[in-house]
Amino acid sequence: MELRKIVYVEDEPDIQVIAKLALETLGGFEVTICSSGPEALKAIPSLKPDMVLLDVMMPQMDGPTTLQEIRKIESCARIPVAFMTAKVQSAEISEFLEIGAIGVISKPFDPMTLAQQVRDLWEAKVNG
């Protein structure tokens, strides 16, 4: 299996553009950006991405809630999901892993290495 399609859920436009550029140009992925949890919930079932990246702190619906909602959709229950967060303390990381995330990428991310970080997480989960 190969990682190709990614949905990135993030409410901050500045981060959206740079993440999209980094993931597409350096990772060669096909990236769809969603600006909120509800928007992602609408898009994910039809896009069927290979992976979802979720910002933790979002207005309306935060990252963890969005993950739980994704899991409730049968066709999406097994899509690997990783969190993007500025809070990378071990307690929070284990909490995120407990609710079913495959990993956590710390923010601010380095645009140069983001694609590789995502790929590493995905491969550890799918092929590892």
Partner: peptide, 27 residues
Amino acid sequence: MANPPGGMSPSFEQKMRELRDAYEKTL
């Protein structure tokens, strides 16, 4: 500090600079 796979493509650098300039203007 790992390098991106396949080295840095010039177009990426270029786009990155453009994004950064655009961002700087919004500061």
